[in-house]
Design a protein around this nucleic acid. Structure first.
Length: 258
DNA sequence: ATGGCTGCTTTGAGCAGA
């Protein structure tokens, strides 16, 4: 099974590149973040004509997540449970079962800067995700938490750790929140296979960040042990960041043995 | 060229992203 995650930064703006990418890479399951579109305006037909069904959880302008699968998909759940009942009003989480694997697609809040209300919201959201997964994820079953976490787990994941020290996506509370989520029983898929630094998934649109390779690794696939045991390969599709009108994130693709 | 932000919106300046 080929499972990918990609923050597309507007599915309508990315439509042509996304379809070309799907035709080239042929993922079985694709988790998308920042689709930025309400469900009735999502380009569903492009997926359907390629044999994909799509679990949608969109909203206008901001956020929006979706899972496309060309294998049968069941048990779709939209949204992160909110405190005191109900669901998070921001569309940042969608989950489904595919081929015996529970797949959760997450778009963690950006957090703006440490010390701001958005930063506190980010930490609170990650803690609510931890509690939700603690209650619903069986670490003994095949499970993948995929998405844009907006956190670089450690300094290997940062092009300039000194400049980024304590900044958003690199601060210790964010890293601790990510470790707390993983402590449910999840391993970083890429790190299971590779220990080297300089592997990035996001580059700022500004200041020639991509040609200078000023990037961060903030998109991840976190796996329970039974699924991690089947992991054969993880690739960051860096080429997808090149050319005209790229997303600022590159897709990450994991391949699993049956 | 891998090139100095991009996408969104009560259509246009301002917000948000990371």
């Amino acid at each position: 099974m080929k499972l990918a995650t990609w923050n597309v930064n507007s599915i309508r703006m990315r439509q042509a590149r996304l379809i070309a990418w799907i035709d080239r890479q042929q993922p079985d399951v694709l988790c998308m973040q920042e689709t930025k579109v309400e469900d009735d305006r999502f380009p569903l037909e492009l997926f359907r004509e390629r044999g994909y069904q799509v679990a949608l959880h969109g909203q206008k302008t901001y956020n929006g997540v979706a899972i496309a699968s060309r294998l049968p998909m069941t048990d779709v759940v939209c949204g992160l449970p909110a405190e005191g009942g109900g669901v998070d009003e921001q569309a940042r989480l969608v989950a489904a079962a595919v081929a015996g694997v529970r797949v959760v697609c997450a778009y963690v809040p950006n957090g703006q800067a440490p010390g701001t209300p958005k930063y506190e919201h980010k930490l609170g959201w990650m803690e609510r995700l931890r509690l939700h997964l603690g209650a619903t994820c069986d670490p003994a079953a095949p499970f993948a938490l995929c998405g844009d976490f907006n956190v670089a787990p450690d300094d290997r994941d940062v092009h300039d750790p000194v400049a980024w020290n304590g900044q958003i996506m690199c601060s210790e509370p964010e890293r601790a929140a990510l470790r707390a989520i993983a402590a449910i029983g999840l391993v970083d898929g890429l790190r299971q296979l590779r220990a080297d630094g300089g592997l990035f998934t996001w580059w700022d649109y500004r200041q020639l960040a991509f040609p200078r390779n000023h990037g961060l690794r903030i998109d991840h696939l976190l796996l329970t042990a039974p699924l991690a045991a089947r992991l054969r390969e993880v690739a960051i599709d860096r080429d997808e960041r090149k050319g005209k009108q790229p997303s600022d994130h590159a897709p990450v693709i994991a391949t699993f043995d049956p």
